[in-house]
Nucleic acid binder design. Structure first.
Length: 455
RNA sequence: GGCGGCGUGGCCGAGUGGUUGAGGCAAGGGCCUGCAAAGCCCUGUACCCGGGUUCGAUUCCCGGCGCCGCCUCCA
């Protein structure tokens, strides 16, 4: 059985499902007020891998990830640019989707938008007020954190120590600095919805509880997101559900962040690289491989050197995929031992570094077999490699298209020269090809070219 | 101040109480090749510092030092 780290208990423990064979996952998606950066790319990849792996293992996975399309930052940006909030949100949601598609990340089964759930949120806030755990101030409606049993579980801190460390400016109307807004009264010009507390908008922490519970039901299986969401966002989501006596996530999964020169990548530090910029110069699969080569809970340094490193490693996998396609291996069952080793690694809190080590080991074994001309030995190994790469969303040797006329002509010229043992002419043709960005390889079947990996 | 994480070869990045340190990249040597490329083989004597526990610690405990994060918006 899959064992996963659970933030609520700070242990790696078996994933215990609400319903055998079915996994319900909710992952906090982006607030669409700006372009996505590498950190967003990491979290979508991490949870894409978890989702794919679970599916590959035979679970029926339902994956929900939201879009936050109403929020202070969206309002602020819209104000700055003289546009409506909806225009800003629509624009950046489109950018988000493009980037995610380019990353090779599968779209969630459902993508709820906060603005479509406001009425449900009003209902939930009213229930909290009725239950006596929420109160009204001039600013809006707040949840009284002291009323919630186990508050601080995800932060792994007591209420007292959280209170002691609170840096939140104390709002006189709030009973505790830790209390958080369920409903914010609208200021003039802000987007708003009707509510028993006057026009306003929901607090951020309310949207995810409502959407998760509405779409996945009480006691759903996995709630995920970046490590920085554990507190206060996830803590506060949980608090609302707990305050109403409803079962919430059974398992909390948080991924580590992307780091730049030792510091967390974030919008506020202005040290981010946009996903779009990265994908313009790096094969998206190389970024996936880079993410997979570190453990999902570790910080991950992304630099031009580390992406180039991953691109070079990816090339090894692609080379074998291409090579094995050329020799025409038989369709056979994947090597069962390789599959078993993969499952062992992945079941151990998603040990993708070990899984990737396994892939490269298979890669080498397949090359050895092919070098020896032993296609029967190579076939199950290559089949396993393909199977396992696919299980984590790595498509191998894609984009191997046909050649343009000039390139084909150069290839033919080189082949003729080599047949005539005219080495200077053959070398000249190769130089031209290399100059055009091709890697040139001589094979028994003649000259073969492929695109040099992006730098 | 509270809580948590990290410090491993040139680089990235796993992992473990003990004869042989995953994997990738880079580097050197070799095989193959007309020369290359690709591929394969070989080469690295690491675990921040100081104590402690132990027959034995990089791995456990304590104390330092350094870095990072959460406690505020953040993937």
């Amino acid at each position: 059985m899959l064992r996963l780290h659970d933030t609520a208990t700070a242990t790696v423990r078996p994933l215990e499902l609400r319903e055998p064979g079915k996994v319900s996952m909710y992952v906090c998606g982006p607030t669409v007020y700006d372009v996505p950066h590498l950190g967003h790319g990491r979290f979508v990849l991490v949870f894409d891998v978890l989702r794919r792996y679970l599916s590959w293992r035979g679970f029926d996975v339902r994956y929900v990830s939201n879009i936050t399309d109403v929020d202070d930052k969206i309002i602020s940006r819209a104000g700055d640019e003289g546009r409506t909030e909806a225009e800003v949100a629509t624009q950046y949601e489109a950018v988000w989707n493009q980037a995610i598609d380019a990353l090779g990340v599968a779209r969630p089964d459902e993508v709820p938008h906060a603005t479509d759930f406001v009425e449900r949120m009003v209902v939930l806030v009213a229930e909290l007020v009725d239950a006596g755990v929420a109160y009204t101030t001039a600013e809006g409606v707040y949840l009284a954190v002291d009323e919630v049993p186990g508050y601080g579980r995800l932060a792994r801190q007591s209420l007292d120590s959280l209170r002691a460390g609170a840096r939140v400016e104390v709002d006189d109307d709030k009973r505790s600095p830790l209390d958080f807004a369920l409903w914010k009264r609208a200021k003039p010009g802000e987007p708003s919805w009707a509510s028993p507390w006057g026009p306003g908008r929901p607090g951020w922490h309310t949207e995810c509880v409502v959407m998760a519970l509405d779409l996945l039901g009480d006691g759903f299986d996995v709630h995920g997101g970046g490590a920085d969401l554990a507190f206060p966002h996830h803590e506060n989501e949980r608090a609302q559900a707990v305050a109403l006596g409803r079962g919430f996530a059974r398992h909390w999964v948080h991924n580590g962040w992307v780091v730049v020169e030792g510091e967390k990548m974030s919008k506020s530090l202005a040290n981010f690289t946009s996903l779009t910029d990265l994908l313009a110069r790096v094969d998206s699969r190389a970024y996936r491989l880079l993410v997979l080569r570190s453990h999902y809970r570790s910080p991950l340094e992304v630099t031009p050197a580390s992406t180039a490193d991953a691109a070079a490693a990816l090339e090894r996998l692609d080379n074998l995929a291409r090579r094995s396609a050329e020799v025409g291996l038989a369709e056979v069952a994947p090597d069962p031992e390789a599959l078993a080793r993969f499952v062992d690694a992945m079941d151990d809190d998603l040990d993708t570094p070990a899984a990737m080590a396994l892939l490269f080991d298979l890669n080498r074994r397949a090359n050895v077999a092919l070098d020896a001309g032993d296609l029967d030995a190579a076939a199950p190994v290559v089949a396993a490699l393909r199977e396992l790469a696919g299980a984590v969303g790595l498509a191998l040797a894609s984009g191997d298209g046909s050649l343009d006329a000039e390139t084909s002509a150069l290839v033919e010229r080189r082949d003729r020269a080599r047949q005539a043992r005219d080495w200077p002419a053959a070398d000249a043709a190769r130089q031209e090809l290399v100059g055009r960005g091709w890697v040139v390889e001589d094979t028994p079947a003649g000259t073969r070219v492929r695109r040099r990996a992006s730098p």
